[in-house]
Write a protein that binds this DNA or RNA. Sequence first.
DNA 1: ATAGGGGTACCA
DNA 2: TGGTACCCCTAT
Length: 875
Amino acid sequence: MSSSVPSTSAQPFTSTFSFTAPFPVSQSSSSQSQSGKQRRVSLALPSSPRVFPAWSFRDDTGLGVHSADAEDEDEVKKGKMRKIAADGDGAQPPAHLSDRPEKKPRKKWTMEETQMLVAGCNKWGVGNWKSILNDPDFRFDGRSPVDLKDRFRTYYPDAYRQHYPNAKTHLSTKVRSALPDGSSIFEKTRSKKRRPFTEEEDRALKAGYDKHGTVWATIVKDPIFQAQNRRSTDLRDRFRNAFPDLYQAAGYKPRNTTKKRRDELAQPMRAATDDALASSSTGPVRRKRRHTDQGLFRGGTKSVPESVNVSEDEDSSEDEDGPATFLQEAVASTPQTEEMLMSPDEDTKEVDMQTLDSFNDTLTIPDFIPSSSLSEMTDSSQSQTWSSGIETPVHSSTWSTATNAASPTSSHISTTDYFNSTSPFQRRGESGPMIGKSAWVPQDWLSANPRLDPSSSDSSYYGSFSPAPSSPFSFAHLNHGVLDRYDLFPTSYAHDFASEVGMGDTHSTFSDPEMFPTSSFRGFTHHSNYAGDLIFGARTHQPSADYGPGFGFGSAGLGLSGMQPALRTPALPGIDEIELGSITLDDPDAAVPMEETVDTAVPKDPTSPEPGLSLSELESYALPPQSMEEIIGLTQDIHVTPPGTPQSHGRTARMQQTGVHLHLHNRSISVPPSEHRAYDPRMPAPQSQQMRSKPLVSPTRSLSLMDYLPLHAPADQRSHAAAASGDASALFTSLTQSANELWKDGSAAPAPGGAENANHDLPFLDLHYYYGPMSGGAIPGHAMDGAATDAQALDLAQSFAMQTKTLSQLPPSLAQHIPMFASWQSALNEAAQSQAQPRMVSAHQRGQSVVSPQDLLLTKGDNKRKRSSWDGGPR
DNA sequence: ATAGGGGTACCA
DNA sequence: TGGTACCCCTAT
C-alpha cells in the first residue's frame, strides 16, 4: 500500500476504469441451500441505523461533484460496470458466468478514500456500506459497497474482527483502527458528556424545586437548564446529589451512600465532576458492573458481543462509562492476585458504575434509555449476583471471547486501562475517550434486545443470557426498575454510581462502597483481568452510527466537541497483533495506580477540565503483562467462538424498537427509533423535544479538524488531557471527518500546532516502547517495521497514552490508522521526539515516529499469522 | 444489501 | 515466494 497511491488525489490508475456496475449482477441466488455457513452475523451493521436521509444517493446527481481529480469516480459511481479493462488482471476470472464481464481493474485505495471510509463508518456505522457510499460527504471512487467492506476488512482488520466476529478469513493482525484511547476509530463518538451543574443551575434547581417540587419536567424548563440541555432526569439526578436531604424528603429513595456524599448534601456541589467523584469515592458504591455481568452472559451465551462500534445507542450512555471502566479494569487488573483479593465484581463495578451511572443518568433516559437503563440494570444486577461466584473467571474467559474484542481490544484496553487507572480523568474521560465503548459493549448484549424493550426485554434478557442473574438479581425484572431508575433514582443514583441500581438490592451486594471509592482502581484492577477482557468484548459493538450525524459532527460546531465524549469504543482487536507478550509489561505495579483517579476522572465534560493526566500517570501505565497476555489469549480464543449471533440482535432490535417509550413514573418518553439511535443526541434536549433531527442529513461535517483538535492549542499536557477528555470524542470524529479534508490537501500538514502536539504524543510513544521490549529492536526506522508487535504495542500504548493527551491532540495511533492523520502525525511525532518528553522515558521514538500510517498498518512481523488468518487460517 | 469466504493480481 | 489488497461470488 502504500504509498504510492495514497496520495490523495491521485487516482490510481487508470483512467478510469470503468466500472463496475452494479448492475444486476444478481448474484443471487441460487441455491441457497447450503446451509452451512452462518453468514451474516456480524455485529456491525445493526448499529447503525442510520437513517439515511432520504436522499440517498449520492452523487449521482452530482456527477460533477467531485471533480477534480477524479476521474473516474463519476463513472464509477454510477455505474459500475464491470467490465473492465483489464488492467490488471488479465486473468479473468473464472467467469463461470459467462457473462460476467471482466473484473474490474484493481484500484488501490487511497488514503482519502480510507479516511472517508472511516468517517463513513463513524457516521453510519460499520456495515452500512451502501449508506456510506451514498453519503455525499464522502467520495469513493468507483467503489462498491462491497469494496468498502473489503477495504474495511483489509485495512482495519482489528476493527473488522470486532464487528464481525464470525469472520474467519481475511483477518490480519494489523492494527489500526484503534484510537489512542483504545477506542475504535470507527466508533462513533458519543456525544454525551458530562457537564457539571453550575452553581447557577443548582440554584435554579433548588428554586425550581421550591416552586414546583419534584416536577423536574417543569423545573427543567428554566432557560438555564434548557441552555444546558439538561433533562428533567438530569435535574433529578443532580438534585439527588446536591440536595440529598431534600431529595429524600421529597420522597425519593435516598441514596444510601454510605458515606454519603460528603458535603454535597449541604451545598450543591458543583460540577458533576464533583459529584461523580464524590460519589465514586465515597460512594456508595458500586453498582454494578456491567461489564462483568455481561461478560457472564455473554460468555455463556454468546461469545460474541457485538461489534464494537459504537453505535451509539445503548451504550452510549453506558458506553462511556462502561468503557472506561472496562478499561480500567483491564488495566488495573493486572495482577491476578489482586483480583483474587478483591472481589472483582465490586471493584469493577464500582468503577463502572461511576462512570456509567453518571452518564447513564444523564444521557440516558431520553435517547438511550432503554439500552442504557438496561445495561445498567443489568449490570448491576448481574454483577451483584454473580459477583461472588462466577464472575470473574467466567467473565474473563467469556468476555474475551465474547468480545472478541479480544486481542486487539485487549491490547488497547489494557492500555487504556492503564491509563485510566493512572489517570483518572481519563476514564472518566469518558467523555472523551475512553469510555464509551466499553461500557456499551456489554450493553449490547444486554441491551441488545433489551434495549429495545426496556421492560420486556430486560427481563428476558437476563433470563436468556444470564441464567442466574435473573433470579439473583431479581432485578431482572428491572423493567420497572429500569424505568424507575430513570425517573427515580436511577438517575439520581446515576451520578454516583452507586446510586443506581443499587439502590436497593443490588448494591447491597456489592456494597462496598468504600472499596471503590478510593480505590476504584483496585477494583478494576482485579477485575481488570477478567473484567478487562470482558470489557473488551463488551464494548465492542456499536458502530457508530450515531455520532456522526447527530451530535458530533453535525452540530458539531456546537459543542459537540465538548459535549461528546465519544469514544467509546473499545478496543481493538488485535490480539494477535498486540502480542502483548512481547509487550509484557513489566510493571504490574503500574497497574496499581488506581487511586482516585477515577473520581477525578469524572470528567466528562470537556468543559470541565479534569485533572490532567500527568505524565506520571502515563508512566504508570505500564501494563501488567500478565493481564495483557491473558487478555490476549482470551480474546483470541474468543474470536472464534462467537458466532456473532448476539450482535445482531442488539442492534437490530434496537432498530425496531427504536421508538421506545419509556414510562417513567409518570411520564413516558418516547423515543424515536432511528433517530435516537442515530443521533445520540441527546444533544439538544432530548426530552420532549423531538429527538434529534436526523443525522443523515447532517453529514456535513463542517468541522475542521483543526477546530476540534486541540492540537494547536497550547499545550500543557494537562490542558491537553483535559481537552482530550472532553474533546476526544469530538476530536475523533472531527478528525475523521476533517481528516478527509486534510487528506485532500495532501500534505495534511499537521499544521501549526503540530509541534506542540507532538510533544504530547511523545510520551505516549514512549510508553509504548516500554511494553514493547520485545519488539525490541525492531524497527527503528520505521515505526513499525519490525514488528508488528511493536507497532501494536505502540498502538496500545499510544492509545491509552494518547487518550490522555492525545485526545486533545491527535492520537498518533489514529493518525496512523487514519491516513490523513498519519502524515501529520508523523510529523508531529518527529517533532515530539525531538523534544523530549518529560515523563516518559522515551526512548523509543521510533515507532511512532513517523512512519506512514500505512506502514504502520502493515505490520510485518506477523505476516504469517496474518496469513493464516487470512486464508482461513482459522479455520 | 451485507457477511463471509475464495481467488488472484500485486507487491516486497 | 510470501503476504497482501482488492475483486468476486455466494449465501443470507
